[in-house]
Computed example of a mutant assay.
Amino acid sequence: MKKSVIGAICLSLAASLWGGMYVVSKYVLDFIPPFTLVWLRYIIAFLFLYTILLAVRKKSGQPRAMAKRDWLLLVWIGFIGYFVSISFQFIGTKLSDAHTGSLITSATPAFIVIFARFVLKEPITLRKVISTFLATLGVIIVIGWDVHVGDYFWGSLILVGAAVTWALLSVYVKVASERLSSLAITTYAIFFALVLTTPAMLWELQSHGIFYESPLIIFGILYLGIVSTAGAFFLWNKGLELMDAGIGSLFFFFQPVVGSFLGWLLLNEQLNANFFIGGAFIVAGVVIVSFQKEG
């Protein structure tokens, strides 16, 4: 199987897993403050991934020592992506709503294409521009444009920051994947993000309580930690390792489609013709860019 096909599968799965994240995080944030939830999410994910990393290393033998520049790159990825971007995402979602969060952060692929041009020297081709336009149009059709920016101005602004910083993460993960495994990148970057989040979490708990009034909260935290963090972060990083970052970014658009579908399936939200029309535009954008000839 071609690397690009495996990469496409990994990226599609990651975006799909994130599809239900906004609904889950919006519910859990009513009981647990943002930085504390991010910290819980990372401690669960790190323990889960580090256990797997140790098992893989034991089976494969002693790994080579990482250079200082590799550690610095992992710190940067953990800071800009897993600390800043995810914190912005949670805070922005809490101040606005899940619908707005899903729409605004769907701008991430456009930022990835731009950053990939300057950091990775990937060309901005006509095919990428057309694909990004079609997929963006599809997202707008699926979710709609009624995001109440006036009512949720600060939340919306923070969510834009989440989109920009996640794009930076994606580009630098591609840089790191040239020397490190996706499992190592994900595990150690999450560890550094955990360390960076700890002071904010301790400060936040001085004025906010944590309430476990329902088993759904526990399940929500476990989903965010194991599924949408450990699992999806690894799949996203693996997919970017196998594909051009500008092309791989288009798979991010599956997130709002899956989120809308899960809203219909689990929350009895209605799916109208816009869902299917917009979904067709998104699929068309991904197909156009995925079937271009590789290097």
Rank of each mutant, 00 (worst) to 15 (best):
T93Q: 04
D97A: 10
D97C: 12
A98E: 12
A98L: 02
H99K: 13
H99T: 13
T100R: 09
S102T: 13
I104V: 14
I104K: 00
T105H: 02
S106F: 03
S106R: 00
T108E: 15
T108V: 11
F111N: 02
I114L: 14
I114M: 11
I114W: 02
F115R: 04
F115E: 01
R117P: 01
F118M: 06
V119M: 01
L120Y: 10
E122M: 08
E122F: 08
T125H: 11
T125Q: 09
T125C: 10
L126N: 10
K128C: 10
K128Y: 09
V129N: 04
I130D: 09
I130M: 12
S131T: 01
T132H: 10
L134T: 05
L134D: 02
L134V: 06
L137H: 02
G138R: 04
G138Y: 03
G138W: 06
V139I: 15
I140D: 03
I141G: 06
I143N: 07
G144M: 04
G144N: 03
W145N: 13
D146I: 01
V149N: 01
Y152T: 12
F153D: 06
W154F: 15
G155R: 01
S156M: 05
S156D: 14
L157H: 02
I158K: 01
L159S: 10
L159W: 07
V160Q: 08
A162L: 01
A162P: 00
A162Y: 02
V164Y: 00
W166Q: 12
A167G: 15
L168H: 06
L168M: 13
S170R: 00
S170A: 13
V171S: 00
Y172F: 14
Y172H: 14
K174T: 11
K174I: 05
K174E: 05
S177Q: 11
S177N: 13
R179V: 08
S181V: 06
S182V: 01
L183F: 03
L183H: 05
L183V: 07
A184R: 13
I185Q: 03
T186E: 09
T186I: 08
T187A: 09
T187S: 12
Y188Q: 09
A189R: 08
A189H: 05
A189P: 05
I190H: 00
I190N: 00
I190Y: 00
F191V: 08
F192N: 08
A193S: 15
A193Q: 03
L194V: 03
L196P: 04
P199Y: 09
A200D: 07
M201P: 05
M201H: 06
E204F: 07
E204M: 07
L205C: 07
Q206D: 11
Q206P: 08
G209H: 12
I210F: 09
I210M: 14
Y212I: 15
P215T: 04
P215A: 04
P215W: 13
P215Q: 02
L216E: 13
